[in-house]
Structures are given as structure tokens and as C-alpha cells.
């Protein structure tokens, strides 16, 4: 395991997967803000993938960097065509021009022949319709890990983890574009810019954080499902969700990197039997969720179920109120400079 010491403070994010509608507003908010350089067309510091699915880059879970026991193993730099997917434009112009009466309207198509993309297997999911079909959305960003594999991989010490907030940053002036960080991060959340020949990654909207404003992905989320704050702030939403109610779990904890992005796992409606009657068994197999978030999924789903039941019975539930985000300001706790969400 990498030997980075925990930092004085750690900023963190919780995402409630029960509320994500897969709108990609977060993806675009991030992309437009940070990744518009020509060499970063394919790069999404924030992406939202449909699960079950292969994700982005394709099959990233198998692209290496860590064994299931958390040991270092050789990872790969994904291929642009087959794994990330080359960014493409659509033939909007052709569709517009030939839309007149009597003319056959062409389909909207990508230029070129893309083989994968950041949202390629959207809404496919798994399971037979209508008994057990299911899917959910998984928004992903750098986990600003407590023990970052990317930092550990850089022979030039070009990656640092800030002591004041635990944000992991690439110093592009020091980066020589070796891409060991891309290989080593098992979440594949470092991206190489082949034009500038440097690596880049999510900066947790550092300039916004310093002004008390949550990252763009969180502030733009219409589902109000992202919570941002410091792990040690007992009055803040992160501590409540991670430590008090214990309903937020890291993605692939078995990589042993100590992710600081946490997820409230998705509940799901029941499967149906052959006569269309609910079986009581969740559509999203719990073991599938265990594979993503670890064994604690069982207890988290039980807590969510019982808190939800409380609300059904008209009893108070601070947890449900927080997750519902009646007051969006409670999603964010960013210290003295914090700005109110209007």
C-alpha cells in the first residue's frame, strides 16, 4: 500500500446514487470548466456511467494498478480508440440541410466510426425485462485518495496531496508525461494530454473550494445528490453520512487507497415473478453492490430501508431529510467563506 500520511484535513464528497438521473449536467459542468484544450477532448474528470456496464474507460476496473488485495500491479494506459473512445462530432449540418419536404432525412450520426465513448453503454443495464431488468448511474471523479496510487507512481514527485484539504494535484510544470500515474490509478482518473504531453486530473475545483464554493459538478447537479465538506466536520453533511449514519461507502475499497468520495448505494424496486407479482428481492443484486462498495452494503441498505420506513410512518428522520436535500445549503459545508446556495 502507498505510504502517504493522512493530511491535516480532508475534503470529501458523498453522492447519493438513489437520486442520480444520469443527466450528465455534472459531466458537462466539469468539462466546460476544466477540459476544453485540444488534447483533452476525450478526458472527463467527471463522468457518469451506467451500471451494470463497462464504464469509462471501457472495463476500467480490469485495467490494473492494484490487485484485489490492494497490492501494486502493472496497470495499463487505456487506448484512445478502444477504451476511452475518441471524441466525435455529429452530422448536425447534414441533418439540418436535408430535412426539407420530400427528401429523406438522414440519421444523426457521429463523424468517423467511434468504437467507445464516455457514455457508450448508457441505460443498457442488465437483467431480463420486465421481471428483473435494472440499471443505475454511477458518477465518478478522482477520489482524492488518502493513499493516492497516482502520487506513489510518479518518479518525479510531480503529484502532491495538499495538507490543508487533501486535494491531490498534478504539478504540470514538473510532469514529464511518463503516464505511470495513469497506469497506476485503478480508478483511471488521471488523463494524459498528448498535445501538451502532461497528465491532468480533477482538482476538486480547488479555486472554488478556496472561496467556499462547492465544485461545479456538485453545484450544478439538479438531483441535489452531492454533498461536499470536510471529513472531520461533525456538523457537516460528510461526517453525518459517513460516520454518524454510516450510509456512505467508498468505491472499490479493496484497492486500499482510502477514497474520499463516498456513495450512498442504490436501493431498487423488487423483482417480479412470472405472474408480475413483486418478489421482495431487489432488482439490483445486493452482491453486485457488494462487489462495488464492499460488505457494508448490507447494513447500509438496511439503514436506508428503516429510515425510509420511519418517514412513511410520519416519524422524523434527519438522515432522510438530509438525503432528500430539502435545504440544499445543508449539502455543503465549506468553512468560513462558504457561500449560500441560492
Amino acid at each position: 500500500m502507498a505510504s502517504q500520511n493522512p493530511t491535516t484535513r480532508q475534503i470529501a464528497m458523498v453522492l447519493d446514487l438513489n437520486k442520480c438521473i444520469g443527466c450528465q449536467t455534472c459531466t458537462i459542468a466539469c468539462k466546460k470548466l476544466w477540459n476544453t484544450d485540444t488534447g483533452t477532448g476525450y478526458a472527463y474528470w467527471n463522468n457518469v456511467e451506467t451500471l451494470p456496464g463497462k464504464g469509462y474507460p471501457k472495463d476500467w476496473v480490469e485495467s490494473g494498478g492494484r490487485t484485489p488485495e490492494g497490492e501494486v500491479k502493472a496497470g495499463r494506459v487505456p487506448n484512445l480508440d478502444d477504451e476511452y473512445g475518441r471524441a466525435w462530432n455529429f452530422n448536425h449540418e447534414a441533418v439540418r440541410k436535408r430535412s426539407g419536404e420530400g427528401k429523406e432525412k438522414p440519421w444523426l450520426r457521429p463523424d468517423g466510426a467511434p468504437r467507445w465513448g464516455a457514455n457508450w453503454d448508457e441505460d443498457r443495464g442488465a437483467g431480463d425485462y420486465p421481471q428483473e431488468n435494472h440499471y443505475f448511474y454511477l458518477p465518478r471523479l478522482c477520489n482524492h485518495c488518502t493513499h493516492p496510487a497516482c502520487l506513489d507512481a510518479c518518479p518525479r514527485s510531480a503529484i502532491e496531496k495538499r495538507d490543508e484539504d487533501g486535494i491531490v494535484l498534478v504539478d504540470q510544470d514538473r510532469c514529464h508525461g511518463y503516464r505511470f500515474c495513469v497506469e497506476a490509478c485503478p480508478y483511471k482518473k488521471v488523463y494524459f494530454d498528448p498535445k501538451r504531453q502532461v497528465s491532468g486530473k480533477c482538482i476538486f475545483c480547488l479555486p472554488r473550494i478556496e472561496e467556499g464554493v462547492a465544485p461545479a459538478c456538485a453545484r450544478q447537479c439538479p438531483g441535489r445528490l452531492r454533498f461536499v465538506g470536510y471529513l472531520d466536520d461533525e456538523a457537516g453533511p460528510i461526517w453525518k453520512l459517513v460516520n454518524r449514519y454510516k450510509v456512505a461507502l467508498p468505491l472499490h475499497p479493496e484497492f486500499e487507497l482510502g477514497p474520499n468520495v463516498f456513495y450512498v448505494p442504490p436501493m431498487s424496486p423488487p423483482k417480479l415473478d412470472e405472474k408480475g407479482r413483486p418478489t421482495g428481492e431487489p432488482r439490483i443484486p445486493t452482491e453486485y453492490l457488494v462487489g462495488l462498495f464492499g460488505k457494508r452494503v448490507h447494513e447500509v441498505l438496511a439503514t436506508l430501508e428503516s429510515e425510509r420506513e420511519k418517514r412513511r410512518q410520519g416519524e422524523p428522520s434527519e438522515l432522510m431529510d438530509l438525503l432528500i436535500a430539502y435545504d440544499w445549503n445543508q449539502n455543503f459545508a465549506l468553512g468560513p467563506r462558504e457561500r449560500e446556495v441560492l
Partner: peptide, 12 residues
């Protein structure tokens, strides 16, 4: 000899 924990192990 390569600095960091990754290269020496991944490329041993």
C-alpha cells in the same frame, strides 16, 4: 532504483 512505489513493483 526508480523513485515511488509503483515502477519498481510493476516493472520488476
Amino acid at each position: 532504483l526508480s523513485p515511488g512505489g509503483y515502477v519498481p513493483k510493476a516493472y520488476a
